[in-house]
């Protein structure tokens, strides 16, 4: 018996259809997930550990540095006006540190080993919000 089913080995127009479907899915997803972030109110970091929300930190004023522990791992997090950064973590992957600073509503930092999520909500979603206000 040759192959159970011999596949086509050259890409054709139908494959383009699959690609189109994935692109459309990505676009639809982007619109719903990225678009909704907006809203009014202050940019707030929501910290959850193990699926439970443990703290909400308003980023309008600098809240400074805080330490969270989850599942045996410790994260040192910097809260600044307009952004959150995991400065230090003792987890093996360091994904959360590599994420850098998150600044926009909808973005998040995830520490899988520690089961800690820091997610931004509220705040101006668009780039038209000023960095500084005088008056």
């Amino acid at each position: 018996m040759p192959m159970r089913r011999s596949p086509k080995l050259r890409p054709n127009g139908w494959d383009a259809l699959v690609i189109l479907a994935v692109v459309l899915l990505a676009a639809a997803c982007a619109v719903t997930v990225w678009g909704r972030g907006g809203g009014t109110g202050e940019l707030t970091a929501v910290v959850s550990i193990d699926g439970r929300e443990v703290e909400r930190v308003a980023l309008g004023s600098a809240a400074g540095e805080r330490v969270y522990a989850g599942n045996g791992y410790t994260l040192t997090v910097d809260f600044e006006p307009g952004g959150v950064t995991v400065r230090e973590a003792d987890c093996p992957t360091q994904d959360c540190v590599h994420t850098g600073t998150i600044t926009r509503s909808g973005q998040s930092i995830v520490c899988l080993p520690g089961r800690i999520i820091i997610q931004l909500t509220g705040g101006p979603a668009d780039a038209s919000a000023p960095d500084v206000v005088i008056g």
């Binding site: 997803c29 997930v33 990225w34 699926g51 998040s108 995830v110």
Partner: peptide, 11 residues
């Protein structure tokens, strides 16, 4: 994670 945060990266 019990949280929908990762959806942000799906696109």
């Amino acid at each position: 994670l019990g949280n929908t945060a990762p959806l942000y990266y799906l696109p």
